[in-house]
């Protein structure tokens, strides 16, 4: 993994979000929704906590992850720039991780607005710091897992809309499967509940850091990246 090449790709990805209207559109909608959530949830509850705020933002990411990640590989394929990346001295892991980190950096920009809310809470309230840390960890890991799935979906089609729909279906599937798990009795039901993403982020938002949840989300990230690499490798043969 060469840091110069990796940085070049991350930089190019992040730049791409800010050179198209899509990036600003996503940011605009996000800030709007975040503001609304914070106003309704935090000021409404008068509680110095962000747990309800973050728990609700996860639902927003079911819809908006596809918007952010759909272009990651589809656009390269469509514009013919995939040929440049594939014939440059880059490994497929460098390409995939570079693109993934680029999207994650954009996510950081999106999330920067939460620092404003955090400041409000820290200044006006007297919150426990550890639960806040757990909230943030769950939020980051959860969304990063979503993004890895979105990146994988993007490698499957050169049509951005198709990519977006694929990632939406996978993400909603990982959500709905939890409800199915509640209805089914026995070990199979437990298994379905285990697969569901939300069952692994809930605890973080309650302020608990459970390593098994960290393991689940990190595995999901790895799987998303791993399958993206496999799809791109298979395109060569």
């Amino acid at each position: 993994m060469n840091s110069r090449k990796l940085f070049a790709i991350v930089n190019r990805e992040l730049g791409a979000y800010f050179s198209s209207p899509l990036g600003y559109f996503v940011l605009f909608v996000f800030f709007l929704i975040y503001g609304l959530f914070f106003w309704m949830i935090c000021t409404g509850s008068h509680a110095a906590t962000m747990q309800y705020f973050f728990a609700n933002t996860m639902f927003v990411f079911f819809i908006t992850t596809p918007l952010v990640t759909m272009r990651l590989w589809s656009e390269e394929e469509k514009n013919g720039t995939a040929e440049l990346l594939k014939t440059s001295p880059l490994t497929i892991w460098e390409i995939v991780i570079g693109k993934y980190l680029g999207a994650c950096c954009f996510f950081l920009v999106m999330s920067s607005v939460t620092l404003v809310y955090l400041t409000f809470i820290l200044v006006l309230g007297n919150p426990d710091l550890m639960p806040l840390l757990a909230n943030y960890l769950g939020y980051f890991l959860g969304v990063m897992a979503f993004f890895a799935i979105g990146l994988f979906a993007s490698t499957l089609s050169e049509n951005q809309i198709v990519s977006a729909i694929i990632s939406l279906v996978i993400l909603l599937g990982l959500w709905v499967i939890g409800y199915a798990g509640n209805m089914v009795q026995g070990p199979f039901g437990d298994f379905l509940k285990y697969i569901s993403v939300l069952s692994h982020t809930e605890d973080f938002f309650k302020g608990v850091i459970d390593l098994s949840h960290v393991f689940y989300l990190v595995s999901l990230i790895f799987l998303g990246l791993f399958f993206s690499v496999k799809v791109l490798e298979s395109k060569r043969s």
Partner: peptide, 23 residues
């Protein structure tokens, strides 16, 4: 390639800097 592999949202200079890094 048949279709030049260029990013329409970049300037020529930024693009060539990117290519220099990955190559």
């Amino acid at each position: 390639p048949e279709v030049p592999p260029i990013y329409s949202d970049m300037s020529i200079m930024a693009y060539l800097k990117f290519v220099a890094d990955i190559k």
